[in-house]
Amino acid sequence: MTKTAPITTKGKESPIPSNGDLAGKYMAFRLANQDYGLAILQVREIIGLVDITRVPCTDSFIRGVINLRGKIIPVIDLRMKFGMEPCPTSEQTVIIVVQYASTRGEITQGVLVDQVQEVLSLEADKIEPAPSFGAGSLSADFILGIGKADQRVIFLLDIGRVLSGDEAKPRVLG
């Protein structure tokens, strides 16, 4: 229990710390040898890889849907979403179930990642603002900040923006 007070005092409505107030706990996970982090309040649970039902005529980064204790949730392949090769599944592949508020209400989704690591407590001085990659760049929109812990660099993701940003766009078939 280190200095995590800012998080606990926050309401559920704003789990993402605003600018300069990014300190808090992050779930670190690995994707193609790079570490990423998700605000812990947006992570509902982590489940092992289960049978994913493919949904036809959807974006390629949507792996399908799974049955999460009677609720049906979509699973996103984060590698595909970031334009990398599809996730080769291994024993360490897991689905992080995230929950975030969008304009259309609360959304629960699964995110397929290579491996989860640990929950990190990042203090404000260990987080740098996201550098500008140029207008319209993929990363600039998705990254809240860059965390540093034990020589590692962790991209802190705004998962709501990552996942909901594209889904409203019309799908292009063919």
């Binding site: 049978d51 039902t53 949904v55 036809p56 005529c57 959807t58 974006d59 949507i62 399908g64 849907v65 799974i66 049955n67 009677g70 609720k71 049906i72 949730i73 979509p74 969008s102 259309r104 209400g105 959304i107 629960t108 989704q109 996942l163 909901s164 889904e167 409203a168 019309p170 799908r171």
Partner: peptide, 24 residues
């Protein structure tokens, strides 16, 4: 099918099948 899947026009929903998997 819930939010977050994008448009799924040929599907009207989903169901949990006898083996626990999701059927469309």
């Amino acid at each position: 099918l819930g939010l977050g899947l994008g448009p799924t026009r040929f599907l009207s929903g989903a169901a949990i099948l006898a083996d626990g998997r999701v059927g469309l």
